[in-house]
């Protein structure tokens, strides 16, 4: 799909995500075990934008927490860059499903957290955070607190906070799920622009198939009870793809139209 620049091969060292035969069981309060994921196998190539679609409760968030190293698989292996995941890795950023900004820190403080935690001198970290805030269109909002922002703006802050660490892997759990359609479209475009600058491997979880098709190189479809991978298909549409609506109504896009249209692209 993309040319093999030196940068891409460099990313190959650490940007590849691989799940093979991953099963995840949770202990229920009753003492029995509940299988949230069964035998999930999927791969995300370095620099690939992969969307995971599925109904609520099919284990999408669980998958992400295991890739992030926040939790372990009960069976099977999760590896990042060829190494089995054994805890939180340096190159991974995670945008959580619910707001994870610290309400007592300013917007600037929230974005500067990553570099500060990693020992970057305060001055540089703050300058960096300012740059990132500008890139997500929030220049001038540095001193606000999260509760003084709209939902979309908070998502931008989260995005800046995630990207400032220059991740090789970006995990996003229904990041725009709570936004209105227009904000969602704008945010999606900005996400793609920013992603294009550093090309981390992305797992983008959503329950919206159209959003998945509009954004991703590859879509993994999951089903519930227990969560399994039902289908994987590539989206071979050139970028920029324009708004989701344009894709649906065939506004200049060749192959992928509506849900049935997406099926024709299934391998």
């Amino acid at each position: 799909m993309r040319s093999n620049t030196p940068r891409d091969s460099q990313l190959a060292q650490s940007g590849r995500i691989e799940l093979s035969g991953v099963t995840k069981r949770f202990q229920t309060p009753g003492g029995t075990s509940f299988t949230a994921l069964r035998d999930v196998t999927m791969t995300v190539e370095p620099g690939e934008f992969c969307a995971v679609v599925g109904p609520s409760g099919c284990g999408k968030s669980t998958t992400l927490t295991m890739v992030a190293g926040l939790d372990r698989a009960s069976e099977g292996t999760v590896s990042v860059g060829g190494e089995p995941v054994s805890g939180i890795g340096r190159g991974t950023s995670f945008m959580f499903q619910t707001d994870a900004l610290l309400p007592w820190k300013t917007v600037l403080g929230n974005v500067a957290m990553g570099p500060l935690f990693r020992g970057v001198p305060k001055k540089n970290a703050l300058a960096d955070a300012r740059d990132w805030l500008r890139m997500v269109g929030l220049a001038g909002f540095e001193d606000r607190h999260p509760h003084q922002l709209s939902g979309g703006m908070r998502k931008r802050v989260s995005l800046a906070a995630a990207l400032i660490n220059e991740p090789k892997i970006l995990l996003m759990d229904e990041p725009f799920g709570a936004l209105d359609v227009q904000t969602k479209a704008i945010m999606s475009n900005e996400l793609l622009t920013l992603w294009d600058q550093s090309k981390p491997s992305v797992i983008f979880v959503t329950h919206d198939l159209e959003e998945a098709i509009a954004l991703a190189d590859k879509v993994v479809v999951m089903t519930a009870g227990p969560g399994t991978v039902k289908d994987v298909f590539a989206v071979d549409l050139p970028r920029p793809r324009g708004a989701v609506q344009e894709i649906r109504f065939g506004g200049g896009s060749p192959s992928c139209t509506t849900r049935s249209g997406s099926r024709c692209a299934t391998r």
Partner: peptide, 26 residues
Amino acid sequence: NLVNNARILGASRLQVVRNVVIPSAM
């Protein structure tokens, strides 16, 4: 969620306590 977010951003245990736990318990 806040704790996990801070950990993923690179916070050590002590940094989590200082930046997340104590302000939140405040």
